[in-house]
Amino acid sequence: MTKKITISDVAKKAEVSKSTVSQFLNERFDYMGDETRARINKAITELGYQPNVVARSLKLKSTSTIGVIVANILHAYSTQVIRAIENVCNENGISTIICNADDNPQKERKYIETLLAKQVDGLIVVPLKGNLEIYKKLLKQDFPIVFLDRLVEGLDAETVILDNERASELAVNHLLENGYKKIAIVTASLTDSVTPRIERINGYKKALEKNGITVQEEYIKGMELDSFDQGLDELFSLDIKPDAIISGNDLSLMEILKYTFENDIRVGKDTGLITVDEVSFGPIHSPPLTTIAQPTFEMGMEVATILLDKIKDKKLKQDSVVHRHEPSLIIRNSTKKEGEPSE
Protein backbone atom coordinates (compact mmCIF):
# COMPACT_ATOMS: atom_id res chain seq x y z
CA MET A 1 0.00 0.00 0.00
CA THR A 2 1.39 3.41 -1.00
CA LYS A 3 2.22 5.61 1.98
CA LYS A 4 0.18 8.80 2.11
CA ILE A 5 2.35 11.89 1.81
CA THR A 6 1.84 14.26 4.74
CA ILE A 7 2.68 17.86 5.50
CA SER A 8 5.54 16.53 7.69
CA ASP A 9 7.08 14.81 4.65
CA VAL A 10 6.95 18.09 2.70
CA ALA A 11 8.49 20.01 5.62
CA LYS A 12 11.31 17.48 5.97
CA LYS A 13 12.15 17.49 2.24
CA ALA A 14 12.00 21.32 2.02
CA GLU A 15 13.97 21.65 5.27
CA VAL A 16 11.39 23.94 6.90
CA SER A 17 8.90 23.63 9.75
CA LYS A 18 5.36 22.24 9.33
CA SER A 19 3.95 25.66 10.22
CA THR A 20 5.93 27.21 7.34
CA VAL A 21 4.47 24.67 4.91
CA SER A 22 1.02 25.41 6.36
CA GLN A 23 1.53 29.14 5.80
CA PHE A 24 2.58 28.41 2.21
CA LEU A 25 -0.54 26.29 1.58
CA ASN A 26 -2.75 29.02 3.03
CA GLU A 27 -1.00 31.64 0.85
CA ARG A 28 0.41 33.62 3.75
CA PHE A 29 3.66 34.75 2.17
CA ASP A 30 4.26 38.02 4.08
CA TYR A 31 7.39 36.83 5.89
CA MET A 32 8.45 34.08 3.52
CA GLY A 33 11.37 34.49 1.17
CA ASP A 34 11.20 33.56 -2.51
CA GLU A 35 13.81 30.84 -2.04
CA THR A 36 11.78 29.19 0.74
CA ARG A 37 8.60 29.33 -1.33
CA ALA A 38 10.40 27.77 -4.30
CA ARG A 39 11.80 24.99 -2.09
CA ILE A 40 8.40 24.13 -0.63
CA ASN A 41 6.75 24.21 -4.05
CA LYS A 42 9.44 21.88 -5.41
CA ALA A 43 9.00 19.47 -2.48
CA ILE A 44 5.21 19.39 -3.00
CA THR A 45 5.64 18.67 -6.71
CA GLU A 46 8.30 15.97 -6.28
CA LEU A 47 6.42 14.18 -3.49
CA GLY A 48 3.04 14.53 -5.19
CA TYR A 49 1.51 15.97 -2.01
CA GLN A 50 -2.26 16.62 -2.11
CA PRO A 51 -3.41 19.13 0.54
CA ASN A 52 -6.53 18.35 2.57
CA VAL A 53 -8.96 20.70 0.83
CA VAL A 54 -11.65 20.37 3.49
CA ALA A 55 -9.29 21.19 6.34
CA ARG A 56 -7.83 24.09 4.39
CA SER A 57 -11.31 25.44 3.66
CA LEU A 58 -12.18 25.38 7.35
CA LYS A 59 -9.06 27.37 8.19
CA LEU A 60 -9.59 29.90 5.44
CA LYS A 61 -13.37 29.96 5.99
CA SER A 62 -13.65 29.63 2.22
CA THR A 63 -14.07 26.72 -0.18
CA SER A 64 -13.18 28.76 -3.29
CA THR A 65 -16.35 27.32 -4.79
CA ILE A 66 -19.63 28.89 -5.87
CA GLY A 67 -22.95 27.33 -6.82
CA VAL A 68 -24.86 28.17 -10.00
CA ILE A 69 -28.52 27.13 -10.15
CA VAL A 70 -30.30 27.58 -13.48
CA ALA A 71 -34.04 27.17 -13.99
CA ASN A 72 -33.65 25.01 -17.11
CA ILE A 73 -30.29 24.03 -18.55
CA LEU A 74 -31.91 23.15 -21.90
CA HIS A 75 -32.17 26.85 -22.75
CA ALA A 76 -29.34 28.05 -25.01
CA TYR A 77 -29.24 31.13 -22.76
CA SER A 78 -28.41 28.97 -19.72
CA THR A 79 -25.50 27.12 -21.30
CA GLN A 80 -24.03 30.28 -22.84
CA VAL A 81 -24.20 32.23 -19.57
CA ILE A 82 -22.78 29.31 -17.58
CA ARG A 83 -19.78 29.20 -19.92
CA ALA A 84 -19.03 32.86 -19.22
CA ILE A 85 -19.50 32.44 -15.45
CA GLU A 86 -17.15 29.46 -15.43
CA ASN A 87 -14.52 31.38 -17.41
CA VAL A 88 -14.50 34.29 -14.94
CA CYS A 89 -14.43 31.96 -11.93
CA ASN A 90 -11.65 29.82 -13.37
CA GLU A 91 -9.50 32.91 -13.98
CA ASN A 92 -9.97 33.82 -10.31
CA GLY A 93 -9.20 30.36 -8.92
CA ILE A 94 -12.84 29.61 -8.12
CA SER A 95 -14.59 26.32 -8.89
CA THR A 96 -18.24 26.15 -9.95
CA ILE A 97 -20.94 23.61 -9.14
CA ILE A 98 -23.70 23.75 -11.78
CA CYS A 99 -27.23 22.66 -10.83
CA ASN A 100 -30.30 22.34 -13.05
CA ALA A 101 -33.58 23.00 -11.21
CA ASP A 102 -35.66 21.78 -14.18
CA ASP A 103 -38.29 24.48 -13.50
CA ASN A 104 -39.08 22.65 -10.25
CA PRO A 105 -39.09 24.74 -7.01
CA GLN A 106 -38.65 21.63 -4.84
CA LYS A 107 -35.57 20.62 -6.82
CA GLU A 108 -34.26 24.19 -6.58
CA ARG A 109 -34.72 24.14 -2.78
CA LYS A 110 -32.87 20.83 -2.53
CA TYR A 111 -29.95 22.23 -4.53
CA ILE A 112 -29.80 25.35 -2.36
CA GLU A 113 -29.61 23.19 0.77
CA THR A 114 -27.00 20.88 -0.79
CA LEU A 115 -24.79 23.76 -1.91
CA LEU A 116 -24.99 25.45 1.49
CA ALA A 117 -24.07 22.14 3.14
CA LYS A 118 -21.01 22.04 0.90
CA GLN A 119 -20.18 25.53 2.23
CA VAL A 120 -20.02 27.27 -1.14
CA ASP A 121 -18.87 30.88 -0.87
CA GLY A 122 -21.80 32.28 -2.84
CA LEU A 123 -24.67 31.57 -5.24
CA ILE A 124 -25.73 32.69 -8.71
CA VAL A 125 -29.38 31.75 -9.27
CA VAL A 126 -31.96 31.94 -12.03
CA PRO A 127 -34.75 31.90 -9.43
CA LEU A 128 -38.04 30.05 -9.54
CA LYS A 129 -41.23 31.04 -7.77
CA GLY A 130 -41.72 29.31 -4.41
CA ASN A 131 -38.47 29.72 -2.47
CA LEU A 132 -38.83 33.35 -1.42
CA GLU A 133 -38.34 32.67 2.31
CA ILE A 134 -35.05 30.85 1.77
CA TYR A 135 -33.67 33.75 -0.27
CA LYS A 136 -34.88 36.27 2.32
CA LYS A 137 -33.06 34.35 5.03
CA LEU A 138 -29.81 34.15 3.03
CA LEU A 139 -29.89 37.86 2.20
CA LYS A 140 -30.62 38.75 5.83
CA GLN A 141 -27.50 36.77 6.78
CA ASP A 142 -25.52 38.73 4.14
CA PHE A 143 -24.77 35.53 2.27
CA PRO A 144 -23.35 36.47 -1.19
CA ILE A 145 -26.03 35.83 -3.78
CA VAL A 146 -26.82 37.36 -7.19
CA PHE A 147 -29.87 36.67 -9.35
CA LEU A 148 -29.82 36.23 -13.10
CA ASP A 149 -32.52 36.58 -15.80
CA ARG A 150 -35.46 36.95 -13.36
CA LEU A 151 -36.61 39.48 -10.79
CA VAL A 152 -37.94 38.34 -7.42
CA GLU A 153 -40.40 40.80 -5.97
CA GLY A 154 -39.75 41.77 -2.35
CA LEU A 155 -36.05 40.88 -2.29
CA ASP A 156 -33.15 43.33 -2.10
CA ALA A 157 -30.93 41.27 -4.36
CA GLU A 158 -28.69 42.39 -7.19
CA THR A 159 -29.92 41.08 -10.55
CA VAL A 160 -28.46 40.85 -14.07
CA ILE A 161 -31.17 40.71 -16.73
CA LEU A 162 -31.98 41.58 -20.34
CA ASP A 163 -33.99 44.66 -21.25
CA ASN A 164 -36.83 42.37 -22.27
CA GLU A 165 -39.28 45.08 -23.31
CA ARG A 166 -36.64 46.50 -25.63
CA ALA A 167 -36.15 43.01 -27.14
CA SER A 168 -39.83 42.86 -28.14
CA GLU A 169 -39.75 46.44 -29.37
CA LEU A 170 -36.85 45.60 -31.71
CA ALA A 171 -38.76 42.57 -33.00
CA VAL A 172 -42.05 44.42 -33.59
CA ASN A 173 -40.39 47.41 -35.27
CA HIS A 174 -38.34 45.18 -37.55
CA LEU A 175 -41.43 43.22 -38.65
CA LEU A 176 -43.44 46.39 -39.28
CA GLU A 177 -40.58 47.86 -41.32
CA ASN A 178 -40.66 44.70 -43.45
CA GLY A 179 -44.38 45.03 -44.21
CA TYR A 180 -45.90 42.70 -41.61
CA LYS A 181 -49.04 44.08 -39.93
CA LYS A 182 -50.63 41.16 -38.07
CA ILE A 183 -47.97 40.15 -35.57
CA ALA A 184 -48.43 37.39 -32.97
CA ILE A 185 -46.21 36.53 -30.00
CA VAL A 186 -45.86 32.95 -28.79
CA THR A 187 -44.04 31.95 -25.63
CA ALA A 188 -43.93 29.41 -22.81
CA SER A 189 -46.45 29.32 -19.95
CA LEU A 190 -47.26 32.59 -18.18
CA THR A 191 -48.67 30.84 -15.09
CA ASP A 192 -45.69 31.58 -12.81
CA SER A 193 -45.20 35.14 -14.11
CA VAL A 194 -41.63 34.42 -15.24
CA THR A 195 -40.01 37.84 -15.70
CA PRO A 196 -38.68 37.57 -19.30
CA ARG A 197 -41.96 36.14 -20.62
CA ILE A 198 -44.14 38.80 -18.97
CA GLU A 199 -41.80 41.68 -19.89
CA ARG A 200 -41.49 40.54 -23.51
CA ILE A 201 -45.28 40.45 -23.89
CA ASN A 202 -45.55 43.88 -22.25
CA GLY A 203 -42.91 45.19 -24.63
CA TYR A 204 -44.77 43.67 -27.58
CA LYS A 205 -48.00 45.43 -26.57
CA LYS A 206 -46.28 48.77 -26.00
CA ALA A 207 -44.48 48.61 -29.35
CA LEU A 208 -47.71 47.91 -31.25
CA GLU A 209 -49.55 50.71 -29.47
CA LYS A 210 -46.64 53.07 -30.12
CA ASN A 211 -47.07 52.33 -33.82
CA GLY A 212 -50.83 52.91 -33.70
CA ILE A 213 -51.74 49.22 -33.99
CA THR A 214 -54.49 47.75 -31.81
CA VAL A 215 -53.36 44.80 -29.70
CA GLN A 216 -55.25 41.60 -30.60
CA GLU A 217 -55.35 39.40 -27.48
CA GLU A 218 -55.92 36.31 -29.61
CA TYR A 219 -52.47 36.92 -31.12
CA ILE A 220 -50.83 36.44 -27.69
CA LYS A 221 -50.13 32.84 -26.68
CA GLY A 222 -48.43 31.66 -23.48
CA MET A 223 -48.50 27.87 -23.23
CA GLU A 224 -46.86 24.79 -21.78
CA LEU A 225 -44.58 23.23 -24.40
CA ASP A 226 -46.84 20.19 -24.78
CA SER A 227 -49.78 22.49 -25.65
CA PHE A 228 -48.09 24.33 -28.51
CA ASP A 229 -49.74 22.33 -31.29
CA GLN A 230 -53.19 23.18 -29.96
CA GLY A 231 -52.31 26.85 -29.40
CA LEU A 232 -50.78 27.24 -32.86
CA ASP A 233 -53.77 25.47 -34.41
CA GLU A 234 -55.98 28.12 -32.78
CA LEU A 235 -53.70 30.90 -34.03
CA PHE A 236 -53.68 29.70 -37.65
CA SER A 237 -57.42 28.95 -37.60
CA LEU A 238 -58.37 32.57 -36.89
CA ASP A 239 -60.43 34.36 -39.54
CA ILE A 240 -57.62 36.91 -39.77
CA LYS A 241 -54.44 34.89 -39.37
CA PRO A 242 -51.18 36.47 -38.18
CA ASP A 243 -48.64 37.10 -40.93
CA ALA A 244 -45.66 37.01 -38.55
CA ILE A 245 -44.74 35.41 -35.22
CA ILE A 246 -42.37 36.49 -32.48
CA SER A 247 -41.05 33.47 -30.60
CA GLY A 248 -40.51 34.29 -26.90
CA ASN A 249 -37.48 32.04 -26.43
CA ASP A 250 -35.48 29.19 -27.94
CA LEU A 251 -37.65 26.32 -26.64
CA SER A 252 -40.77 28.04 -27.99
CA LEU A 253 -38.94 28.42 -31.30
CA MET A 254 -38.36 24.66 -31.53
CA GLU A 255 -42.10 24.00 -31.11
CA ILE A 256 -43.00 26.65 -33.69
CA LEU A 257 -40.55 25.25 -36.25
CA LYS A 258 -41.84 21.72 -35.64
CA TYR A 259 -45.42 22.90 -36.14
CA THR A 260 -44.71 24.88 -39.32
CA PHE A 261 -42.81 21.93 -40.80
CA GLU A 262 -45.59 19.43 -40.02
CA ASN A 263 -48.27 21.77 -41.39
CA ASP A 264 -46.45 22.90 -44.56
CA ILE A 265 -46.29 26.53 -43.40
CA ARG A 266 -43.31 28.13 -45.09
CA VAL A 267 -41.27 30.34 -42.75
CA GLY A 268 -40.30 33.56 -44.48
CA LYS A 269 -43.04 33.09 -47.09
CA ASP A 270 -46.34 32.09 -45.47
CA THR A 271 -45.32 33.63 -42.16
CA GLY A 272 -42.51 35.81 -40.93
CA LEU A 273 -40.63 34.53 -37.88
CA ILE A 274 -38.31 36.25 -35.43
CA THR A 275 -37.03 34.71 -32.20
CA VAL A 276 -35.61 36.01 -28.94
CA ASP A 277 -32.41 34.08 -28.08
CA GLU A 278 -29.77 33.29 -30.65
CA VAL A 279 -29.56 29.56 -31.38
CA SER A 280 -26.64 27.67 -32.88
CA PHE A 281 -28.63 26.61 -35.96
CA GLY A 282 -30.07 30.09 -36.58
CA PRO A 283 -27.62 31.09 -39.33
CA ILE A 284 -27.89 27.72 -41.15
CA HIS A 285 -31.63 27.07 -40.87
CA SER A 286 -33.61 27.30 -44.09
CA PRO A 287 -34.34 30.15 -44.18
CA PRO A 288 -31.76 31.61 -41.77
CA LEU A 289 -33.56 32.92 -38.67
CA THR A 290 -33.82 36.57 -37.74
CA THR A 291 -32.95 36.80 -34.03
CA ILE A 292 -33.05 39.15 -31.07
CA ALA A 293 -29.81 38.14 -29.36
CA GLN A 294 -28.96 38.49 -25.71
CA PRO A 295 -25.37 39.48 -24.82
CA THR A 296 -25.07 36.23 -22.85
CA PHE A 297 -21.29 36.28 -22.46
CA GLU A 298 -21.28 39.84 -21.08
CA MET A 299 -24.17 38.99 -18.75
CA GLY A 300 -22.39 35.91 -17.45
CA MET A 301 -19.17 37.85 -16.91
CA GLU A 302 -21.00 40.59 -15.04
CA VAL A 303 -22.99 38.31 -12.73
CA ALA A 304 -19.83 36.34 -11.85
CA THR A 305 -17.82 39.51 -11.22
CA ILE A 306 -20.54 40.95 -8.96
CA LEU A 307 -20.67 37.75 -6.91
CA LEU A 308 -16.88 37.46 -6.56
CA ASP A 309 -16.72 41.08 -5.41
CA LYS A 310 -19.34 40.32 -2.75
CA ILE A 311 -17.36 37.28 -1.61
CA LYS A 312 -14.09 39.23 -1.41
CA ASP A 313 -15.61 42.20 0.40
CA LYS A 314 -18.13 41.11 3.00
CA LYS A 315 -18.88 44.78 3.74
CA LEU A 316 -20.53 45.26 0.34
CA LYS A 317 -24.19 45.93 1.08
CA GLN A 318 -26.85 43.74 -0.49
CA ASP A 319 -29.07 45.93 -2.65
CA SER A 320 -31.76 45.69 -5.28
CA VAL A 321 -29.76 47.11 -8.20
CA VAL A 322 -30.98 45.72 -11.53
CA HIS A 323 -28.37 45.59 -14.31
CA ARG A 324 -30.23 45.69 -17.64
CA HIS A 325 -28.43 44.57 -20.80
CA GLU A 326 -29.26 45.76 -24.30
CA PRO A 327 -30.46 43.16 -26.86
CA SER A 328 -29.37 43.27 -30.49
CA LEU A 329 -31.15 42.52 -33.76
CA ILE A 330 -29.58 39.98 -36.14
CA ILE A 331 -31.39 40.26 -39.48
CA ARG A 332 -31.72 37.12 -41.61
CA ASN A 333 -34.20 35.79 -44.15
CA SER A 334 -37.03 34.49 -41.95
CA THR A 335 -38.51 38.00 -41.82
CA LYS A 336 -38.26 38.81 -45.51
CA LYS A 337 -41.45 38.91 -47.55
CA GLU A 338 -41.60 36.57 -50.55
CA GLY A 339 -39.97 38.20 -53.54
CA GLU A 340 -37.63 40.37 -51.50
CA PRO A 341 -33.92 39.95 -52.27
CA SER A 342 -31.84 37.82 -49.88
CA GLU A 343 -28.84 39.26 -48.06
Rank of each mutant, 00 (worst) to 15 (best):
Leu307Gln: 02
Ile220Ala: 07
Lys110Leu: 10
Phe228Arg: 04
Val276Ile: 07
Tyr111Asp: 00
Arg200Cys: 04
Lys140Gly: 11
Val120Leu: 05
Lys182Asp: 15
Arg56Ser: 13
Asn92Val: 07
Ser62Phe: 03
Thr271Cys: 07
Asp30Cys: 11
Lys206His: 12
Ser247Thr: 01
Ala14Trp: 00
Met299Asp: 00
Ser237Trp: 12
Thr195Met: 14
Tyr77Lys: 03
Thr20Ser: 15
Ser247Gln: 08
Ile112Ala: 13
Thr187Lys: 07
Glu133Ile: 14
Val125Trp: 01
Ala157Asn: 02
Ala188Lys: 11
Lys136Ile: 12
Ser252Asn: 11
Pro242Ser: 11
Leu251Glu: 09
Pro283Val: 07
Pro295Ser: 03
Ile94Gln: 00
Ala117Tyr: 06
Lys241Pro: 10
Lys136Val: 09
Phe281Ile: 14
Ile134Lys: 14
Tyr77Asp: 03
Ile112Leu: 09
Phe297Asp: 03
Ala207Met: 10
Ser95Glu: 06
Ile44Tyr: 01
Leu329Gln: 02
Glu218Lys: 12
Arg56Gln: 14
Pro341His: 06
Glu35Ile: 10
Arg109Pro: 09
Lys107Val: 12
Glu177Pro: 04
Glu224Ser: 14
Thr45Gln: 15
Ser342Asp: 15
Asp226Pro: 08
Cys99His: 06
Ile69Arg: 01
Ile145Lys: 06
Pro242Gln: 08
Val125Gly: 02
Pro341Lys: 08
Glu218Asn: 15
Ala157Thr: 12
Asp142Ser: 15
Asn100Gln: 09
Val70Asp: 06
Pro242Asn: 13
Glu218Gly: 08
Leu316Cys: 10
Val194Ala: 13
Ala14His: 04
Asn211Ser: 04
Asp243Ala: 11
Pro105Tyr: 02
Leu289Trp: 01
Asn249Lys: 02
Phe297Pro: 01
Ser227Leu: 15
